[in-house]
């Protein structure tokens, strides 16, 4: 079975309708309550989902028993469910969240002093879709680099088709991986968001993450080096029912130099990013939603 098949969509129309109705009737807390039963079902019967989360849990909690790790997987499922509910809650206009933007002034001044835009490097942790909405106050267009098969869900979550929103999509499957569009966006002062946690086997460097070797994509750093724009790391986390923190305070400067030297420096940048993910996992161990064994075959 391919990795793509492992990431099959879960949930059906009836299930989603029940959650949506519950949200309107019982509010956020009541709807979160449903998750404890639904996630128990997935924990018991969805072996692929459990294995894809266990790959992370067993590295994050090396000394724990299998049972405790299984509880960890259950907590991740519940938090992922809360994320999905929160996204719907937000886009349907039922309410909003208190989003603490850490590093906003730094990012704002970076955009102010630089006519160019920045690359936003993020990962499938926390609730990056909710985090994106927080960036709207920067007043810049945000381009998301993502595969077409992920478009529908993200378009819905971010309400991208709405003309008033300043979020757009660039497909990596367009000509030359969308690099011409990416460079144009950066040169015009926009923000380009790239996922840095899955390499799909291409353009990746080895790094150490949670004690094991993993391959992470380096495209964001190569583009940053060419455009000479900084890479701003965006990591978000849910702190309480209605509060999120979005951290954009960590910045990785673009590398310079001849190609061979640049490649070595980019390897360092990839490891720096892996270190940030390590720290994130230490602080928010159950908000890691990189489903799949990204370490597989590297050790």
């Amino acid at each position: 079975m391919s990795k793509e098949e492992h990431t099959k969509k879960r949930g059906n129309r009836l299930g989603l309708a029940i959650f949506r109705a519950s949200l309107k009737i019982f509010g956020l807390s009541g709807t979160y309550g449903l998750l404890y039963f639904v996630c128990l079902y997935y924990l018991a019967f969805d072996r692929i989902a459990v294995a894809s989360s266990m790959a992370y849990i067993r590295r994050r909690f090396k000394k724990q028993s299998y049972l405790r790790r299984l509880i960890g997987v259950y907590r991740i499922f519940i938090n992922q469910g809360k994320n999905l509910i929160d996204r719907y809650y937000l886009i349907s206009g039922l309410g909003g969240f208190d989003i603490e933007l850490s590093g906003y002034d730094k990012l704002n001044s970076l955009l102010g002093e630089n006519h160019k835009g920045v690359i936003l490097l993020t990962a499938h942790v926390g609730n990056w879709q909710v985090a994106m909405t927080a960036l709207e106050k920067l007043g810049r267009t945000v381009y998301l680099l993502m595969r077409p098969e992920d478009n529908a869900a993200v378009k819905e979550a971010l309400n991208i088709d709405n003309e008033s929103r300043r979020i757009r999509i660039i497909s990596p499957e367009s000509y030359l991986g969308g690099v011409v569009e990416i460079m144009n966006a950066i040169n015009s002062g926009s923000i380009v968001s790239i996922m840095g946690d899955r390499s799909y086997g291409q353009n990746s460097f080895e790094a150490k993450l949670l004690g094991d070797r993993v391959r992470l994509p380096y495209g964001a750093f190569t583009i940053a080096a060419a455009a000479q724009c900084p890479v701003v790391v965006l990591l978000s986390a849910k702190l309480s029912e209605k509060k999120y923190v979005v951290d954009v305070s960590q910045i990785i400067e673009p590398v310079q130099g001849p190609k061979a030297e640049k490649q070595e420096k980019i390897k360092g940048s990839v490891q720096e990013f892996a270190g940030m993910l390590d720290n994130y996992a230490a602080q928010y161990p159950f908000q890691w939603f990189v489903f799949g064994d990204i370490w597989e075959g590297n050790n």
Binding site: G177, V179, V180, E181, N184, N187, T222, I223, A226
Partner: peptide
């Protein structure tokens, strides 16, 4: 060449000739 080489060519056109390709 691959897509990341394309990034260098985009920069090369800008730096040496002041040209930007706006249209995909």
């Amino acid at each position: 060449l691959d897509s990341l080489d394309a990034v260098e060519i985009v920069v090369l056109l800008q730096r040496n000739f002041g040209l930007e390709i706006k249209d995909m």
